[in-house]
Design a protein around this nucleic acid. Structure first.
Length: 433
RNA sequence: GGACAGGUGGCCGAGUGGUUUAAGGCACACGCUUGGAAAGCGUGCGUGGUGUAACAGCCACCGCGGGUUCGAAUCCCGCCCUGUCCGCCA
């Protein structure tokens, strides 16, 4: 959701931002709607003021026992133009809102230009790819060999794009999530652990920008709930319709939840294995900040997600998405991609976005500044919201399997996970199970 | 799921169709008073929109959305939420 006042005051900057999204300039068109809207509001309010004054006089006259027919006739004469004015103002106001709410957020100036993922820019590469000395298998081959990763069993009850994990792999997934949560909620991490609802109403999905745009990608229940496609939805909505004090910011939330995505449009992509599932676990990070804090918080959040991979000793690279590849709510997005030797490729394992005030405006999430610059009037400003995966747990499991595999099909457990695995040093080879 | 009772500003709370232009109190801010403080007194104190160079002014908002009316916090309808009781349930 965009601020029409910002567009009024910075039409060129607005159009420049749209251009980075590969969209045509719109400020002139939007400002013309705004001009008509404001004229209609002024007219309608003047008529309302007149009616209010007359109604009060009717009340006074009746109180004194005087006749009020003349006054009532005067109001009746106003009626038609009043209704028309109100309807016109409301129509123009909702037209403007509808136009503004479907537009994507404006990328920051330092976001690279581009129309698709080929425009993304790698900014760092951390860790070194292991030299195996044999041909590494992918996670499907590794997991199915022991029977601990069972797509057939899941298929029988739920169909494609689901998986059943058993025994060591089931526990490994839980271990990874625990490890991540413990890291993020440590003093160094600074996040507060949240256990949120997995079903939300329209309003919450609208607030983060999932609705109306991504209705098709979400599962919907027949009594009106949406299954969360990411914990970003409930975590960010924790501040929905709130006015926070500046000293309460930044607020940092983390949650381990299942995520549900129907992703009808992605059918055919990554059909093999656990890369793309209808249901997957993810540890999410969300920060609520002042506008001044958000850029630094974005770097910090990305760093905390990277820290998980560093401690797991998994090689990765971090890229900054170009204007054409970012999600609509974002002003700047870093993707972290983990090395998967079984696929011989880097694959996305985290996406960290600074959404500026885009979601806050939709959710009406504000704060009261201690001092200094205020909003147009009043004493509140919209907060900034950020979200990032820290990390996608299912894909982290894949990464551990593929990077820590041994030639016999056993998988070494990374040091930092062993305490979560009851001291287990390796998942045994299929032959040994 | 059913029945009943509720939802008013940061908080408490009055308000059953018209001087409500939301009383009063608490808290908070500033001032007066004081040796200093408390008390007392005075003033201020919501959000959004519109408007203005900036003020002023104007409009809307009493859980949310509709409706009735010249006029709605107040009456009617739908929904959300809270409380109590009942039912069901891990």
């Amino acid at each position: 959701m965009h601020d029409i006042r910002f567009i009024r005051e910075n039409p060129a900057a607005f159009d420049t931002g749209l251009k980075k999204r590969n969209l045509a300039p719109l400020s002139a068109e939007l400002l013309e709607i705004d001009r008509r809207r404001r004229a209609a509001i002024s007219e309608s309010e003047a008529a309302q003021a007149k009616r209010k004054a007359l109604s009060r006089q009717i009340g006074i006259a009746k109180g004194k026992g005087e006749a009020a027919e003349a006054l009532m006739a005067e109001v009746a004469a106003l009626e038609a133009s009043l209704k028309k004015g109100e309807a016109e103002a409301a129509a123009l106001d909702s037209e403007l809102t509808h136009r503004l709410e479907v537009l994507p957020n404006l990328p920051f100036d330092d976001v690279p230009d581009g129309t698709d993922e080929t425009g993304n820019v790698e900014i760092r590469r951390v860790g070194s790819q292991r030299n195996f000395g044999f041909t590494p298998k992918d996670h499907v081959a590794l997991g199915e060999a022991t029977g601990e990763m069972d797509f057939a069993a899941a298929g029988k009850m739920s169909g494609a794009r689901f998986v059943v994990l058993r025994k060591h792999l089931a526990r490994l997934e839980r271990a990874l999530a625990q490890f991540m949560l413990d890291l993020h909620t440590s003093e160094e991490g600074g996040y507060t652990e949240i256990n949120p609802p997995f079903l939300v109403r329209d309003k919450a999905a609208y607030g983060v920008g999932q609705l109306p745009r991504f209705a098709e990608d979400m599962f919907h229940t027949d009594n009106g709930f949406w299954l969360i496609p990411t914990a970003e939805v409930p975590l960010t909505n924790l501040v929905n319709d709130m006015v926070l004090e500046e000293k309460q910011l930044p607020q940092r939330f983390t949650a381990w939840t299942p995520c549900f995505r129907s992703e009808a449009g992605a059918a055919g992509k990554d059909t093999r294995g656990m890369i793309r599932q209808h249901q997957f676990p993810k540890v999410e990070l969300v920060s609520i900040t002042t506008p001044e804090q958000s850029a630094a918080e974005h770097e910090r959040m990305t760093g905390r997600a990277e820290e998980v991979l560093k401690r797991l000793d998994l090689p990765f690279r971090t890229i900054v998405l170009c204007g054409g590849d970012m999600g609509p709510a974002s002003r700047k997005t870093y993707d972290i991609e983990v090395w998967l030797p079984g696929q011989n490729a880097y694959r996305e394992i985290s996406s960290c976005s600074n959404c500026g005030d885009y979601q806050a405006r939709r959710m009406n999430a504000r704060y009261r500044p201690k001092e200094g610059p205020r909003g147009s009037k009043g004493g509140t400003r919209f907060v900034h919201t950020l979200n990032g995966s820290g990390l996608a747990v299912g894909r982290t499991l894949i990464a551990v399997l593929e990077n820590y595999q041994n030639e016999d099909g056993s998988v070494t457990i990374p040091e930092v996970l062993r305490s979560y695995m009851g001291g287990l040093a390796a998942i045994p080879a299929p032959a040994a199970q």
